[in-house]
């Protein structure tokens, strides 16, 4: 199909469509109202709930931080705390920047650039999250053990099932992380390609 042939077919379709009228006055106003009420429940729900959970745990950790009495427990505590506070903030900020792209004012090009950049940024944070989740898993166990059970896991050791659980979870996390990394890499590449093409 040549471009001119496509144009002719498109024109025929346009004529057919223009002869029809499907939308009623009430339906059009419903569409504006419907979306308006939905808007608030959308997009950031999961991230906001996740952030609240992270901040609550962080608060608990701050209050009980003095109970972490060795350098390695303090190190684990600092990493856990840093993760729980920083990552949700970065994700929420990134989502906010996606939401703040002005559809009504921007040109098509500006919108594509805005979304591609914001998406790339969010994906990079999520990619970083994959690595951090892995470390978090290893640091939060001794911290939780100390704060919830008052046991220093490095000194007291643990039962066989506990080590088994850690080993299996670690293996699963390695696979999930590898899979996630590949997914994010592809998506970031696709956003980068769009940005590159816009420079042409």
């Amino acid at each position: 199909m040549e471009l001119e042939e496509m144009k002719t077919l498109w024109r025929e379709m346009s004529v057919q469509i223009d002869e029809q009228k499907q939308l009623t006055d009430a339906l059009i106003m419903d569409m504006t109202q419907q979306k308006y009420t939905q808007k608030f429940g959308k997009i950031t729900t999961y991230e906001t709930v996740g952030a609240v959970i992270c901040f609550t745990i962080a608060l608990f950790l701050i209050i009980n931080f003095n109970r972490l009495d060795t350098w390695y427990l303090i190190s684990c505590g600092i990493f856990t705390l840093g993760y729980l506070i920083t990552l949700p903030i970065l994700v929420l900020r990134s989502l906010k920047s996606i939401k703040s792209i002005h559809i009504g004012r921007n040109s098509y090009k500006e919108s594509i650039i805005g979304f591609a950049k914001a998406k790339k940024h969010l994906l990079l944070i999520q990619k970083l999250g994959i690595y951090c989740n892995f470390i978090l898993f290893l640091t939060c166990i001794p911290v939780a053990s100390k704060l919830l059970g008052n046991k220093d896991i490095f000194l007291t050791g643990g039962s066989l099932w506990k080590y088994g659980f850690i080993l299996i979870t670690t293996i699963v996390m390695i696979f999930v992380s590898k899979w996630g990394y590949r997914c994010y890499k592809n998506m970031i590449n696709s956003a980068e390609n769009i940005l590159k093409e816009l420079e042409d």
Partner: peptide, 30 residues
């Protein structure tokens, strides 16, 4: 402009949609 921009936004958030309340209407028949 707005239709194209909304389409771009839609592509970027379609995987993140929560619950969409869809109105009952017929699309045009081309």
């Amino acid at each position: 402009r707005i239709t194209l921009n909304t389409a771009i936004a839609y592509l970027n958030k379609s995987k993140r949609r929560v619950k969409q309340v869809r109105l009952n209407f017929e699309l045009l028949n081309p």
